[in-house]
Design a binder for these strands. Structure first.
Lengths: 257, 257
DNA sequence: AATTGAAGTGCACGATTGTGCACGTTATGG
DNA sequence: CCATAACGTGCACAATCGTGCACTTCAATT
């Protein structure tokens, strides 16, 4: 019928990329029997929408947080520090916190108030190390089989441990924030985060600008379940308004003073 | 289909460096099947971005900042490395290991055989971090409330997790080794270590010279329960003989060649 | 039915990127 | 001090890219 329609072709390519498959311009051109120019235009459009990464010879899927923690430490360090500093202000004395894995939460450790009788639980090896270095924090390690991509434990053992805790405040790392709420790219990761949200009285999400408006496959929490969303100053007023309207209880903008 | 893409290669290299792994230009060239020139160009680009440090033969990761454990590693570093290197020789492929907290066991991580399908369990935050950096090791984190002196978890939760495991080989840190066996200065620490010994088919103790002949209050294991004791070359023949006589199955002397 | 405009396509052109090789230079270890 | 290995540079070549342009298609309008 019309299996060679341009839209179908683009959707097919987009689906593969969403499925973490790298694509080659030459191969796609042969497969859909169009010139490489057409394919290149498709890929350029996809990349402009942030749905893939353009590279020489084709395009790569957005590998969301696949890069190990340390890799992401360098990029956007300042932004993360601003977010972390702002988020830490909300923490009160004596609280029982959970810090999810992620470079932004790692940055948060050093901004937590000093000698505030805080207890920090985490499933991230790096965050645990950072907390341990601060003698004024109590540390609870969530164990299990460690996932090398996440840099911490997100398996059934970890979920089981989470289920038995009651946090005053949980800081969740999200791969994407949209009107649908927070989402992650990996199934197990999302499952773990859902358990954390369920065990926390308040859920806080720190989102660097690149996460806003993105979408990811696996749902973590609706916007209504997020008690505080901390974003950077680069957020447009439109975005803020639509988040407000969608039910986030508090949107905090870091670095606007 | 396009797994050998230049961009993927560079990302892979960058990820390793971000993971604190040094890389060799020659090895990478062979691994990705390109000329060393291409690799050198990659490394030069990475270094220009400040993501690694260029050295003769390859590139080194950027040291994040003051290494927390490097301080402790400083004292007696050479001796610990000798013990660790010797102890690692005994490890066979596919084994399930436990590494108790302690700087000597931390040193052991980097000497474990590469790509030997090893699984490492540990209760130490620093050791977990070190294991995580080596992507050829599986990591199991033993969770619980972390003890800031020990740098890991030794509470009831941790003991419970240990009880359910069966290690091929456990590396125990001991505060003291005498004819009575191994002992520790802290009660909880000793309790935890006893659980580990009970769950291990073989128990290995790495003892720096200052631990030999010392006594400590809380019993961990008799000499008969220790399957291998690794000591440094500074041990007198008398000491060795008395240990032998007391029932240690194997006393290994590191650094005598 | 004819007109119009938007979207998609292929092609030609010069620019850019990645690669390997050859050359001379520099570091490292005995 | 010397041998070797690794290095940087310049160069040639191929693949790929971006852009401008002409052409088709198709649906909506006149």
């Amino acid at each position: 019928m019309m299996n060679d329609h341009p839209t179908i072709r683009r959707d097919t390519i987009a689906a593969r990329l969403a499925n973490q498959q790298p694509v080659s311009a030459t191969a796609l051109a042969a497969e859909f029997d169009v010139s490489e120019d057409a394919i290149r235009r498709d890929l350029r459009a996809l990349a402009a929408e942030g749905r893939c990464r353009r590279v020489y010879g084709g395009a790569l899927p957005i590998l969301p947080d696949a890069a190990p923690l340390a890799a992401r430490l360098g990029e956007g360090r300042e932004e993360k520090h601003r977010l972390a500093r702002a988020a830490a202000l909300a923490v009160g004395p004596g609280e029982f916190l959970f810090l999810d894995s992620g470079s932004t939460n790692l940055a948060l450790v050093e901004f937590l108030p000093e000698d505030a009788d805080l207890t920090v639980a985490t499933n991230s090896v790096d965050i645990a190390a950072a907390v341990l270095r601060r003698q004024d924090l109590r540390l609870i390690v969530v164990g299990g089989v460690a996932d090398s991509l996440v840099g911490g434990c997100i398996d059934a053992v970890a979920v089981q441990a989470i289920v038995q805790m009651r946090f005053d405040r949980a800081f969740i790392g999200a791969c994407a924030i949209s009107e649908d709420g927070a989402a992650a790219d990996h199934f197990e990761d999302a499952t773990f985060k859902r358990a954390v949200v369920a065990s926390a009285r308040r859920t806080v999400v720190l989102a660097t600008d690149d996460k806003l408006g993105r979408r990811a496959v696996h749902h973590i929490a609706s916007l209504r379940q997020i008690d505080m969303l901390v974003v950077g100053p680069g957020v447009s007023d439109d975005q803020r308004a639509s988040l407000d309207a969608a039910g986030v209880r508090a949107v905090m903008v870091a670095g606007r003073d």
